[in-house]
Amino acid sequence: MEVRTIKVFTTVDNINLHTQVVDMSMTYGQQFGPTYLDGADVTKIKPHNSHEGKTFYVLPNDDTLRVEAFEYYHTTDPSFLGRYMSALNHTKKWKYPQVNGLTSIKWADNNCYLATALLTLQQIELKFNPPALQDAYYRARAGEAANFCALILAYCNKTVGELGDVRETMSYLFQHANLDSCKRVLNVVCKTCGQQQTTLKGVEAVMYMGTLSYEQFKKGVQIPCTCGKQATKYLVQQESPFVMMSAPPAQYELKHGTFTCASEYTGNYQCGHYKHITSKETLYCIDGALLTKSSEYKGPITDVFYKENSYTTTIK
């Protein structure tokens, strides 16, 4: 009895394709271990004539594949690729409408935090270190965002349907971005203890939790000093293409032309909904596939993004 075979390709990165001759009487799992086709788990399936010449994702289970996976995804987590594939199996079914010149995501599976993050990423200057993220990001900007969303979920250790947080998501993504040249110098002034300067680099240099107003941050924000008295913390120097200011959701007025974009969060910790506000020729609110415009805006804002380049204080 002759062994019926077909020729397929296996890959971990969709760049390096490895030619395989597979036995049609055995499952993919018996031949390769966990195997995925377009995100779908085909591990328990036997090869079919229609699979001839198709590319299958496999887990990096030998040295060659491990090197290829690390170079593309910059992670050695053995569960990463499987999590990416199972997320992709959902995100490829989502709709990605162009809204006001940006790629958004039609609401499904509690994905409003991903839509808000995706919209924000198209408006701030950011370059990702893992080629996987950078490639998928370019495709997302062009309207094909399924891979990018699935990668975000995998890097953030999230599953489809789980509630997510924009600030946490951005923080994970910033860790995989090139923020080497970003720098922030802060000064804390206390009447009792004097003053202390701190220099922050990388992710810490672009994120701040405690106030939404970048102007206020430049002037000074009140913080408790270690001595128990009130101290003032203010920005001395900022070198970065953008800054992200966050605070627990509270009524906040966004003035046209003073910011790049913002995240609105309605609801409580267990259950809520994100919308995205962007400042173009007027203010726009993007909620999944829905767009509304207004000249002014007041609502429960939790993150505001500002364009920056270089700032030095005039406070002496």
Rank of each mutant, 00 (worst) to 15 (best):
T116F: 00
G299W: 00
S50H: 10
Y155V: 04
K255W: 05
Q20T: 09
E2N: 12
T199L: 07
C261E: 08
Y208A: 03
L17P: 00
L102N: 01
D77V: 04
K219A: 11
D109L: 03
S181E: 14
L126A: 04
S246L: 00
L133A: 08
D135I: 06
V67G: 14
Q122K: 05
G161Q: 05
V166K: 03
V304S: 04
K219S: 10
Y137E: 04
F259I: 06
Y284F: 10
E162S: 07
L81E: 06
T192N: 12
N14A: 08
S295Y: 05
N178Q: 12
P241L: 04
Y269W: 12
A142R: 12
V12C: 10
Y311C: 15
N111Q: 00
Y73F: 09
M26T: 15
N187V: 10
K233I: 15
N14R: 13
S86G: 09
G194N: 05
A289G: 11
T232P: 02
P248N: 14
T91Q: 01
E281C: 11
M245R: 04
T232C: 01
T226Q: 13
L163T: 15
K127E: 15
S263R: 02
W107G: 01
L291K: 10
M170A: 03
C285W: 14
Y36M: 06
L186M: 13
K280Q: 14
L291V: 15
T5S: 10
I277H: 05
A140Q: 02
K293V: 11
F56T: 05
A87K: 11
E281Q: 04
P78G: 12
T198W: 11
R141P: 04
P131D: 00
H74N: 05
K46S: 12
E239M: 07
W107Q: 00
A205K: 00
F305H: 01
L88G: 04
H176G: 01
K275L: 03
P60C: 06
S310I: 12
Q134T: 09
K316G: 15
P224Y: 09
K316H: 15
F56Q: 01
A132F: 02
W107F: 02
Q251K: 09
K93A: 06
I6R: 10
K219C: 10
L114N: 07
Y172V: 14
E2P: 11
K46Q: 12
G272C: 00
D62I: 07
K298C: 13
V21I: 14
Y36P: 01
E71V: 02
E68F: 02
G220D: 02
D180P: 03
K316I: 15
I223K: 04
H273W: 02
Y234N: 02
Q197S: 11
G33N: 03
F80K: 05
G272I: 00
T198F: 14
K191A: 12
D13P: 15
S246M: 00
K307R: 14
V243T: 02
H90S: 13
T35M: 09
A142C: 12
Q134N: 09
L290F: 12
V221C: 07
I45V: 13
Y73G: 04
A231H: 05
Q134H: 11
Y297W: 07
L119W: 01
L114I: 10
V99R: 09
S213Y: 05
K233C: 14
L163P: 14
D62E: 14
T35D: 15
T192Y: 10
Y284M: 10
T292A: 07
D109Q: 12
L173S: 09
T43V: 06
T302L: 02
N129H: 10
L81H: 10
K183I: 11
S294H: 15
L65A: 10
S295M: 15
R139A: 14
I15P: 09
A69C: 10
S50C: 12
V189E: 04
Q98W: 10
T198S: 12
W107R: 09
Y214A: 00
I277C: 00
G267I: 11
F148A: 00
F32H: 15
V21R: 13
N187D: 06
Y265T: 08
Y297P: 01
V243R: 03
H90E: 14
Y73E: 05
K233T: 11
V206Y: 04
T11M: 07
G228S: 03
W94D: 06
V67D: 13
T192A: 13
F70L: 15
Q196T: 12
I6A: 12
L200Y: 12
E215C: 05
E52D: 13
E204C: 02
V304C: 00
D109V: 01
C193Q: 00
L65T: 14
C227E: 02
R66W: 09
F128M: 07
M24R: 13
C271E: 10
N110Y: 01
K92E: 07
P78I: 03
F128I: 00
K158V: 01
E52W: 10
T91R: 05
T266S: 10
Y28P: 08
L186W: 08
K280P: 00
S79T: 13
N147F: 02
V166R: 06
E68Y: 06
S25P: 08
T35Y: 05
Q195M: 15
H51E: 11
C227D: 00
N89Y: 09
V8R: 02
S171A: 13
T35K: 00
M26W: 08
L212N: 00
S86R: 12
A69N: 07
Y138T: 14
N178I: 05
D287G: 05
A205F: 03
M170S: 01
V236P: 01
V12Y: 09
A108I: 07
D77C: 11
Q237G: 04
F174G: 04
A40L: 13
D135E: 14
K7F: 10
S295K: 12
I105D: 01
T211K: 02
K298H: 14
K92T: 07
T314L: 15
S104P: 00
Q195V: 15
Q123N: 07
M85L: 12
V166F: 15
D13V: 01
K275Y: 02
H48I: 14
D109N: 10
N178G: 06
G272S: 00
G101E: 10
A231Q: 02
F32A: 06
Q123I: 04
I152L: 11
H48N: 13
M85I: 06
G257P: 03
V58N: 07
D62Y: 05
H256A: 13
P60L: 03
N187L: 11
V67R: 14
G272F: 02
S246Y: 05
T198D: 07
F32C: 15
L153M: 10
N100Y: 12
E264T: 09
P224V: 14
I6Q: 13
P248E: 06
Y311F: 12
I315S: 15
K307S: 13
I124W: 04
K307Q: 03
Y234E: 04
T292I: 06
Y234C: 02
G228L: 03
V12I: 15
A140P: 05
T75F: 08
L133V: 04
Y208D: 05
T198V: 13
T232Y: 08
P60N: 02
E239K: 09
P249H: 04
L235F: 00
Q196G: 08
T314E: 12
H273G: 04
S279C: 14
G29S: 09
A132W: 02
R139Y: 10
